[in-house]
Design a protein around this nucleic acid. Structure first.
Length: 562
RNA sequence: GGGCUCGUAGCUCAGUUGGACAGAGCAGGAGCCUUCUAAGCUCUUGGCCGGGGGUUCGAAUCCCUCCGGGCCCA
């Protein structure tokens, strides 16, 4: 995988050039690097390519005005590097450094060489990472809220992979505990009603229509089941229902282009003694104690508000106990970075989980939780209620069928995950700018249309463009596209580091905007010089590649026609 | 009551971890299709970044404190 690394070669070159020049300047002055000194891409392209604040920070030690220092530094940099065409001083004393167009034109070659791998980087350094997401209880079909988590986890995995992490994805199946018993009971209750053996209505049972369907199916396959004892019936109902529902979940996820590599059973933690193993580890470290007949974990030693129970008086284990065992097992399987995608309603759970991680002797940086806020499903502005238990929910499958995978995923992934989002079925179906997915896809399709036309006209395009041809890319709009594409690997690395998927969709919208603007301003095939035609085709082909690579991070298709 | 989180244009949201005059899209207004896809482009109207203090050369961003929404726990 090492040869895949093509990230930001151009930017790295620019950055290190400036870095060493500033270093030389400091050496000449006999000064150390100021702590708050930064060299970074300029916020605004009008300000050049890279900007640095060092002059402002050197003003005090040198006893000179910031702008005076900046002027000195600017002269030095300008005279020391050929690729740098200008160094301007701005505002309170920023140095804005601009590289020659030839420097940026190389981005097209970078993309041509890397192809689908453009954007990959070594940021993650091959860290063995486990992304766990969805992990919904198999008590009913996935709803839209799960869909957001699914899209997020899947996309995070894609981003982390491109950023050089060694990623495995996993679904944790809660197949032990109360919810599961309730599932079996709910099916059994329905089944007994169907055969006129009514029983007392269970509390908090699952009322969805799908429970009735499952009961019916079971009766059809085995009519004798109706006469079974409650204990036997419930158990068989549970086993059957769990499998059917899990199959459904798997199918819904597949339809949504989400695939987990592992499906991990909570029950296996008990069956394989992994809970005991985790307990032993904690006990050995001295964090467990008995009180009032229960087994406690001293999470307060790690900043939790109170200690937590692992095994209750009656001998049953808490959810926390199996979660500890599960995460302990993740580490013992060799993962050294755990990313959990959780519903935001579990946020109160984070401190104790962090405590558990710390008690295992692990660093805080080895465990991250990405919280997914609620999705408010709307229909023409009116809320649609969702509740698995009441049986009045919009399933993920329904929503995907209604608006399509591309629109749904893009919508979910365009917002910060920790803020609640309104998902209006009407708006998401609309082909407007309320729905930027079409805007981005359209940019890709437009380029493909030009490529097709170019081929018809016999304007053959070399696999790899030469420097001479690319030299024709010299307008501000050319530069804007080149810079934006050059930022792509950085953007991915940053999204990976901060686990923020929404950067990707924003980036793509910006790139698409530059493209549409370019498309309207310049005619590509009818440019006055043949070299310009070639150069622009190469540029656009590169843009299409970056758009496709970016859309792939979101699990959204890059259509060739629309 | 305690904890977490959010508050940015009429609406939906960005804001590259403390930088330059606060940015997009939608909605409103004015234009652009005999020429590569108008699902597009170009102008334009619109803001005390919830309020007040503080740290800093510099704050939407960090700290404190109120106000207001959401969620979790009790």
């Amino acid at each position: 995988m090492k040869e895949d690394i093509v990230a930001g070669d151009t930017r790295m070159q620019a950055y290190s050039t400036v870095h060493s020049l500033v270093g030389e300047f400091l050496l000449k002055k006999g000064l150390a690097w100021p702590e708050k000194a930064v060299i970074e891409p300029a916020r605004d392209p009008k300000h050049g390519d890279l900007a640095t604040n060092v002059a402002m920070l050197l003003a005090k030690p040198l006893g000179k005005a910031p702008r005076e220092v900046a002027a000195e530094l600017a002269d030095f940099i300008r005279s020391s590097c050929e690729d740098i065409v200008s160094v301007d001083i701005a505002g309170p004393g920023f140095c804005n450094i601009t590289f020659a167009p030839s420097f940026w034109q190389k981005v097209v070659s970078d993309v041509e060489h890397a192809g689908v791998r453009y954007g990959n980087s070594a940021t993650g350094a091959g860290k063995k990472t486990l992304v766990e997401y969805v992990s919904a209880n198999p008590t009913g079909p996935l709803h839209v809220g799960h869909g957001r988590g699914a899209a997020c986890g899947d996309s995070l995995a894609r981003i982390l992979r491109r950023a050089g992490y060694d990623v495995t994805t996993e679904y944790y199946i809660n197949d032990a505990g109360r919810q599961m018993r309730l599932l079996g009971l709910s099916v059994w209750y329905r089944l007994r009603n169907m055969v006129n053996r009514p029983m007392e209505e269970p509390a908090d049972w699952y009322r969805g229509e799908y429970i009735k369907d499952i009961a019916q199916e079971m009766l059809l396959q085995d009519p004798d089941l109706a006469a079974a004892t409650d204990e036997d019936g419930e158990q068989r109902c549970y086993e059957y229902a769990k499998d059917v529902i899990l199959e459904g979940i798997r199918a819904d996820l597949a339809e949504f282009r989400v695939e987990h590599q592992n499906w991990f059973s909570e029950k296996s933690l008990f069956d394989e003694g992994k809970v005991e193993a985790a307990f032993q580890a904690l006990d050995k470290a001295g964090y467990l104690y008995e009180k009032d007949g229960a087994l406690w974990f001293a999470t307060t030693q790690f900043g939790d508000d109170k200690d937590r129970v692992l095994r209750k008086q009656d001998g049953s284990l808490t959810y926390f106990a199996s979660d500890i065992a599960y995460h302990h097992d993740k580490f013992s399987r060799g993962f050294d970075y755990l990313v959990d995608v959780w519903g935001a309603d579990h946020h109160g759970y984070i401190p104790r989980m962090r405590a558990a991680i710390a008690a295992m002797g692990r660093q805080q940086s080895e465990f991250d939780v990405e919280l997914i806020q609620l999705v408010n499903l709307l229909m023409k502005g009116q809320p649609v209620s969702m509740s698995t238990r009441a049986g009045t929910f919009e399933t993920l499958a329904d929503v995907v069928k209604e608006v399509g995978v591309d629109a749904a995923r893009f919508m979910f992934l365009s917002r910060k995950m920790d803020t609640a989002v309104d998902f209006d079925l009407e708006a998401v179906k609309e082909r407007s700018m309320d729905n930027p997915v079409y805007y981005v896809q359209y940019a890709h399709a437009r380029i493909c249309a030009i490529m097709r036309r170019a081929q018809e006209q016999g304007a053959g395009l070399a696999q790899l463009s030469s420097e001479e041809v690319l030299a024709a890319l010299d307008t501000p709009e050319d530069m804007a596209l080149l810079r934006k594409m050059e930022y792509f690997p950085d953007m991915i690395a940053q999204a990976a580091r901060t686990l923020s998927v929404h950067h990707v969709s924003h980036y793509l919208t910006e790139l698409a905007q530059l493209l549409h603007s370019y498309y309207n301003k310049y005619s590509i095939l009818a440019a006055d010089k043949p070299d310009t035609v070639q150069a622009r085709l190469a540029l656009l082909r590169a843009v299409a590649q970056v758009l496709a690579n970016g859309l792939d991070l979101l699990g959204v298709s890059a259509p060739e026609r629309m």
